[in-house]
């Protein structure tokens, strides 16, 4: 790769910090591969760690069949959630973001390390302490949310904010692939789905993550909180929205979108 990875990572970090959308990096670097993109993502993650931010855990993206088809990929992608992304105040600010969308997910709190290759969903469940509901705010740094696969990987899989619910359940208490989820804005149902929308089962998503990380000599760590992927589609947010989501057996989450 001839381009400067660090410069591209800086380009994306400054877009996030300055809250402005930028041209996708493959416009200038059409030869960029998925492997290259993960190298840029590593640079970006390293920069945030240097700034003093802490990783909450990895997140999975492109986990729905529809999104995989749309992007023409066989497996999901991953990125990282940092501590500054976790929003506990019950509101997010439009002025902090570019063009945010929200999707409802199930997050896994890991009780043990999980190291691939060959990890299955059953092993992922066994390594999980708790499952909790989560609303993820994705906010691509690219113009009009338009990107190719390497673009979105380099952009930390569009990670932006996350709001966790307070209902913690042991993973064995629920049939996670059958958990029904509804997402409403201002009282109007916007999207819905069941856990199986995430690569067949949310635990399968965690297993795939462990196996993808293993290719880089990495693993899922005890204490990681993993966002497994959207059960609903991603819904555009506007100032003044009141967002509510409900999970069967995992309670609800609500937040407002302020200026």
């Amino acid at each position: 790769m001839t381009m400067n990875n660090k410069a591209l990572a800086e380009y994306l970090v400054s877009a996030e910090t300055e809250k402005r959308e930028v041209t996708r990096i493959t416009a200038e670097h059409p030869e960029l591969t998925v492997e290259d993109a993960y190298v840029i993502q590593e640079q970006l993650v390293g920069m945030k760690l240097e700034q003093g931010y802490r990783i909450v855990g990895p997140k999975m993206g492109l986990t729905s069949r529809a999104k995989m088809k749309q992007m023409n990929v066989e497996e999901p992608i991953y990125g990282y959630i940092f501590d500054y992304m976790v929003e506990d105040s019950g509101r997010i600010s439009m002025s902090d973001l570019i063009h945010p969308k929200v999707e409802a997910e199930i997050a896994f709190i890991m009780g043990k390390d999980l190291e691939g290759p060959g990890v299955t969903g059953a092993q992922a469940l066994a390594a999980t302490d708790y499952v909790i509901p989560a609303l993820e705010i994705i906010d691509s740094r690219y113009e009009n949310f338009q990107f190719t696969l390497p673009d979105v990987i380099a952009d930390n899989a569009s990670s932006s904010r996350v709001i966790f619910g307070s209902a913690m359940r042991r993973p064995g208490e629920l049939e996670l692939d059958l958990v029904g989820v509804t997402l409403s804005i201002n009282g109007q149902l916007k999207d819905l789905g069941a856990g199986a929308a995430v690569v067949g089962h949310p635990a399968h998503s965690v297993a795939m993550l462990a196996n993808m990380l293993a290719r880089k000599g990495l693993k899922i760590k005890k204490g990681d909180i993993i966002l497994t992927g959207g059960i609903t589609g991603a819904v555009m947010l506007s100032t003044g929205d009141y967002v509510t989501a409900k999970w069967d057996g995992l309670g609800e989450i609500g937040f407002t979108v302020s200026e």
């Binding site: 029904g180 149902l189 789905g193 069941a194 199986a196 409900k246 999970w247 069967d248």
Partner: peptide, 27 residues
Amino acid sequence: LDLTQVGMVLYRNGQIENTGVGAAALG
């Protein structure tokens, strides 16, 4: 049960076709 939140997965020949939830029917 809470009829509005009952999740459903529809498979065709073992492949997931789509998922849904009770609220899909008029809420």
